[in-house]
């Protein structure tokens, strides 16, 4: 048995934990998307009730989850940067000519831009938190209680064309990131089997499209329509 820290920071270990944290975040994105769907309902109360439940109704469980998410994100990002740096160091002199070999290769645009799409997503997460979670505070009354009117924050936020297009572009990039990321996570965990490889790649594309379009539509709809009537 290897010392755990040495193994975890090795080339294989880094990707193992990058895969675990990546898959965890994909799970979170699905839950986030489900929550967002309440915005489409047209009633500000359902979204506000959901947002109030997350911040006040979980008896602190949400803080544990938030901690895991932040820790997971940091592990993911730090590992990714380490992999990127290792690649730069390993080839100090670049080829004069390079070519994608095709065939069994999986080097797609998605795969070779992971560090760039990932960096933009990291910046996005910070902007997103400042914009909404720590953004403008409005109040509303629900069932006789004064709670935060998150619905108003979202609606007013997406009146800005800058924010709307920023969100739309990043959400499109998430699709690219997940297309390679989902399959790659399985490979990094050692889960590769001729019987299931096609399925894993297909599910990866499906997840990429679902999450990308799901998140992308919302700011666009809210911006163009000004919110449900």
């Amino acid at each position: 048995m290897m010392p755990f820290l040495k193994a975890a920071t090795s080339s294989v270990g880094k990707k193992f934990f990058m895969a675990l944290t990546g898959l965890f975040w994909i799970m979170f994105l699905f839950i986030h998307l489900l929550g967002n769907l309440s915005l489409y309902s047209g009633h500000k109360d359902s979204f506000n009730a959901y947002s109030d439940f997350l911040t006040h109704g979980t008896h602190g469980v949400v803080y544990v989850l938030e901690f895991i998410m932040v820790a997971g994100l940091l592990i993911h990002v730090i590992s990714a940067v380490a992999v990127f740096i290792s690649a730069q160091k390993a080839r100090p002199i670049q080829y004069a000519m390079s070519k994608n070999l095709g065939g069994p290769s999986r080097k797609t645009i998605s795969a070779s831009t992971m560090i760039y799409t990932g960096s933009l997503m990291f910046i996005f997460i910070i902007v997103h938190l400042i914009h909404f979670k720590f953004g403008d505070y409005y109040s509303t009354v629900l069932d006789g209680r004064v709670i935060r009117d998150m619905y108003a924050t979202v609606l007013i936020g997406f009146q800005s064309p800058f924010y709307t297009w920023f969100y739309v572009i990043i959400m499109a990039l998430i699709g690219f990131h997940l297309r390679h990321g989902f399959w790659s996570a399985f490979q990094s965990l050692g889960l590769n089997h001729p019987r299931y490889n096609g399925l894993i790649a297909f599910v990866g594309v499906l997840i990429a499209i679902t999450l990308s379009l799901g998140f992308l539509m919302l700011p666009l709809v809210l911006h163009l329509t000004g919110g449900p009537a």
């Binding site: 880094k14 992999v83 290792s86 690649a87 065939g103 069994p104 795969a111 070779s112 992971m114």
Partner: peptide, 18 residues
């Protein structure tokens, strides 16, 4: 392999093609 200074694997699959 890590000590020798090779880069980490990003599951790109160019190796298999080559």
């Amino acid at each position: 392999m890590d000590i020798e200074g090779f880069g980490d694997c990003s599951n790109l699959g160019e190796c298999e093609a080559a």
